[in-house]
Design a protein around this nucleic acid. Structure first.
Lengths: 229, 229
DNA sequence: TGTCATCAGGTGGTCTGACCAATACGACCC
DNA sequence: GGGTCGTATTGGTCAGACCACCTGATGACA
């Protein structure tokens, strides 16, 4: 026997927030939303309420707001995850250590599922990412291509939550790698990505997961992040 | 050669948000923060700015705001993760499927690390959670004790990001399980938790991870969620 | 003495209108 | 065609008013 709590009516801000989210969902990335003043008039609420609602959507990664310019639709649902991880572990080195560990849990399984589920288009995209890694000139390009490969794998797993996590993890790692962490052996990463890609092309899930596991161990060693055993 | 973007000065809302976050960090869970009007006077900004900043902190899970009552400090950093996952996968059944898959990636590794890293206190807490599961009368109590056990394992892994993810995942699963999903064989879960706990007490990391993997497969079958292979 | 109802004061929620800071766009000039 | 300037529009902030909700104190009654 459970007595449910009595539901409070949503505040105006919450209601407007949902309306705006619906509106944003009907638009594409980069499209403009109506101005604060216009939304205020159209929805029959004060501009404060529109502002507060819009700012919620911004924090959720659904829109970006620019003073003088308006609001535009974006697809950055990972943004609140980034903030949360940053708040939880403010120290960059510590955070990199923890992120690396989470990747070691998540990514072999993503890769295993990708081997089973990747579409032809996704396999092609993985090949392109691998090419970009092979041809990368700067460290920034390497990191970008590297993380792209990992993001694509997570997408190919068919699990949107894993894909979102990977977006967040990779972006945070990219930010850390831009600040003083250097990869010393890109050639090994290229080879290991190649082994992963091959296992996926063969639809060999176990081999793919093992190859990813190996790759992440190397990547961790490369970054000089040995987590306590 | 990288030219960094020119940093914009933070908006007043951002600045106040950081101040409030600092203030919240100095307080304990449940403590009250100054009122909007007081903060407005003390910080020399308008009440709108304080409101907008406070609402950011609420969305981040650092405070809770109650009309007529004020703001209190909470520790719910997983809240924005819950929202993001909910936005990403609005359909409850789909979300449960995906969450279950993510758990299958994360939890064996958490459990392996817990076997290596759990403190004596954490092992005791795990035992208590197991007792609570054994003694649970209602389905709600079972689910709560079950999820508590998993949360404690994630904490015992020593990885705060995993622990945060597990908080979010378990809360979302609990919410779904409160809405029509029924576990049919609690006795098996109790046995499997027992096996996990035993492996942890023996500090056998591989056995712990295997036991968790097994447990999650059973739990998934129990919920009738067979993910596409 | 304990319980319940009421009320006042204080809290956050919303509104309005004014003004400031940043952006975009069009017109004009070289 | 490219650069500059001015204006209109956008979001950011402010102040003050009023509304809806909460809390704690007080008084009445059993």
């Amino acid at each position: 026997m459970t007595i449910d709590t009595i539901a409070r009516p949503p505040s105006l801000v919450e209601t407007v927030c949902e309306r705006l989210a619906d509106l944003a969902r009907q638009e594409s990335d980069g499209d403009r939303l109506p101005t604060e003043r216009e939304l205020s008039a159209r929805l029959g609420v004060s501009r404060s309420v529109v502002r507060e609602a819009a700012q919620r959507l911004e924090l959720q990664g659904l829109i970006e707001i620019r003073q003088g310019s308006g609001m535009k639709v974006v697809d950055k649902l990972h943004k609140p995850l980034n903030s949360a991880f940053h708040l939880l572990v403010p120290d960059e080195k510590q955070r990199l250590v923890h992120l690396t560990e989470v990747r070691q849990a998540l990514e072999p399984e993503n890769t295993r599922l990708a081997a089973l589920r990747a579409t032809g288009t996704q396999v092609k995209e993985l090949r392109l990412a691998q090419s970009r890694l092979e041809q990368a000139r700067s460290f920034e390009e390497q990191v970008h291509a590297d993380m792209d490969f990992h993001r694509l794998l997570a997408e190919a797993s068919g699990n949107p939550i894993s894909a979102l996590l990977m977006q967040s993890l990779s972006e945070l790692m990219q930010a850390s790698l831009a600040h003083g962490y250097r990869r010393v052996t890109p050639a090994l990463a290229i080879r290991q990505h190649g082994a992963i890609l091959q296992a996926i092309e063969k639809r060999d899930a176990a081999a793919a997961a093992r190859a990813m596991h190996r790759h992440l161990l190397s990547a961790r060693a490369d970054l000089g992040l040995d987590s306590p055993r």
